[in-house]
Amino acid sequence: MIVKRTQLTWWERLYLPALIGGFKVTLRHFKNTITGRTRVTQQYPEEPTKVPPGYRGAPYLVRDQDGDTKCVSCQLCEFICPPKAIKIIPPGDSGLQSDRANAEKMPREFEINMLRCIFCGFCQEVCPEEAIFLKQDFSLTGLARGEMVFNKEKLLSLGGTHAGIQKWKHKLDEAEEQETFPIQT
């Protein structure tokens, strides 16, 4: 492609118009800021940051409307987590019963190392139970590395409630309506 090079007049070639234009622009910005017409700086700790909805903050575990843990320890988030920040210990033979009727599985321990987490949101995307969500927290600090590894209680307490489709409960209700087999939960 041909790039047209405009011929500069001798006045333009002296570069003075460019200089004067530059002076005007910078002076305008200076005046606007110093008189207060331009206010873009956020004075951070005093003015808290409002994050937009859908902001990817720290991931937390959520409970459903009835206060049950939604996580069923499927370990998909552990698998997909790119920096391997999530570590899950499945219930195994511990005899740990899920605290929710009809879903037989619940993690024995669920740890997220917030220092490794890159806040990508893959765990939220892959979770089939809508149990982990990236909430609004972005400034996580701690005094030791161990402090920043959040365990299940901490994650559940920070996650709050997320009402959703209570799949396992619906299944149980449906099963109990059908008379054919006695259903044990």
């Binding site: 910078t26 910005h29 200076f30 606007n32 800021t33 110093i34 331009t38 873009v40 700086t41």
Partner: peptide
């Protein structure tokens, strides 16, 4: 400070 004001910050 002057650089900041020219750059729309404080």
């Amino acid at each position: 400070k002057i650089s900041a004001f020219i750059q729309d910050r404080v």
